[in-house]
Amino acid sequence: MSKKPPAPMPSKAITRRNRRNAYLFLLPNFLGFLVFTFIPVIFAFALSFTNWQGSNKMDFIGIDNFIRMFGDSDFTISFINTVIYTVGTVPFIMLFALLLSMLINSGIKGAPIFRALHFFPHISSIVAISVVWQFLYNNSQGPINMFLRSIGIQNPPGWLSSATWALPAVMIMIIWKYIGYYMINYLAGLQAIPKDLYEAATIDGANGIEQFFYVTLPQLKPTTFYVLIMAVIESFKVFTPIHVMTQGGPGRATSVLVYQIYRDAFVNFEMGYASAMSMALFVVIFVVTLIQFKLQNKYEN
C-alpha cells in the first residue's frame, strides 16, 4: 500500500480541531460501513459457531458446523465443483486474454473497435448472458447443437441437461465473458514494456518467438500474476450463472460453493451452518489475497 505522508507533531488545539473535522467528513460513510460491512464481517465469523436457523434461539455449538460440513456431500461436491470450475476457466481465460491482447497490440487497423467488441460481454448483465446462452445451449433445437449436427456430429453434447456437460457448458460461457476484461489488463501491461527491450533483442538476433519468451512474458509477470489472483477470486465467487442456468443440476453436477451457501442460508434457513461454509470461502480468498500481498511486495522491491 502507499506510504502515509510524514506527520509533523501538531499541537493539542490543532489535533482537537483536526479530529473534529475528520470525524465530520468520515461520519456518513463510517456509520454505514460500521453497520453494514464491519459488524457483519465480525458477525459472520461468530455465526459459523452457532446453530441459528433464522428464528430459533442462537446457541453456541462450537465447531459442530465445521465437522458436519466435511461429512456433508452437498458441501464437498460444491467445493470440488468450484475447484474444477476455477481450474477449468482461469488458465484458458488468461491464455486467450494474453494472445488477444498481443494480437490487438500488434499494430492492426481498427484495434479500438476489436478491443470494445471483446470487452462488451464483461460489462453485460450476467443474467441476460446466461439466459441467452441457455437458449444457445438448448439440447434439441439450440443453434449450437443444430450447427454441430449440420457439420456431421450425430450426437452433440446435451450441454446443460447432461450431468457431464453442464459444468463445462457454464465454464465455456464464462471464459467467453471474461476474456475481454483480462485482455484489457494485458494490453496495459504490454504497453508498459519499454520499446528498447525489443530493439535490443532484435539487435541480438532474437526472432519473434524468442522475443515473446525472453522479453514479453518476463515483463508481463506482474500483470499475469494480478490477472491470475483476480480470476481465481472471481471464480470462487461464481453464483449467478448457476442460479439462472442450472440451479446446481442436473443432480448436483453444477452446484458450486456460493450456490450451496445461498441455498442453505436463504432457502433452508440454516444460517449458522451456511455461515460455516462461507468461512470456507473466506479462507480460500484470504489465502489467495495473502499470496498476492507477499508476491506483490516482492515484485515492487
Binding site: A44, A274, L281
Partner: peptide, 9 residues
C-alpha cells in the same frame, strides 16, 4: 472479504 461471505449477517 467478499459480499458472499457477509451476506448472511
Amino acid at each position: 472479504v467478499p459480499f458472499q461471505v457477509i451476506m448472511i449477517p
